[in-house]
């Protein structure tokens, strides 16, 4: 169910009339509406990660990494 929400939203994006009708129906049930929106939100927005790792280095750190690797004996 959770996994289907994002593809469903994308599919509906191309069908604005249907999307509007569905939205209006869901609006009548605030608890369901908030639950669905909350799930969509959690599915589509991963929390920012303050930790640094090898796969997410900015350019200045990559430059330093290249310099360090050039100086390191083979690992």
């Amino acid at each position: 169910m959770k996994r289907l929400l994002t593809p469903l939203r994308r599919w509906l994006a191309a069908r604005p009339r249907l999307r509007r009708q569905l939205t209006l129906i869901v609006y009548r049930f605030p608890a369901l509406d908030m639950r669905l929106r909350g799930l969509l939100h959690a599915n589509e927005r991963s929390s920012a990660d303050c930790r640094v790792d090898a796969a997410h280095l900015g350019a200045p750190a990559r430059v330093v990494q290249a310099r360090l690797r050039a100086r390191m004996p083979s690992r």
Binding site: D53, A54, A61, V64, Q65, L68, R71, M72, P73
Partner: peptide, 24 residues
């Protein structure tokens, strides 16, 4: 100094953190 010392014992992510900290 780092290359001649401890970096050989660090994994890729730790090495990346060292480089990130040095750049910063």
């Amino acid at each position: 100094e780092l290359a001649q010392g401890v970096t050989a014992s660090l994994d890729e992510d730790d090495l990346a953190r060292v480089c990130d900290a040095i750049a910063a």
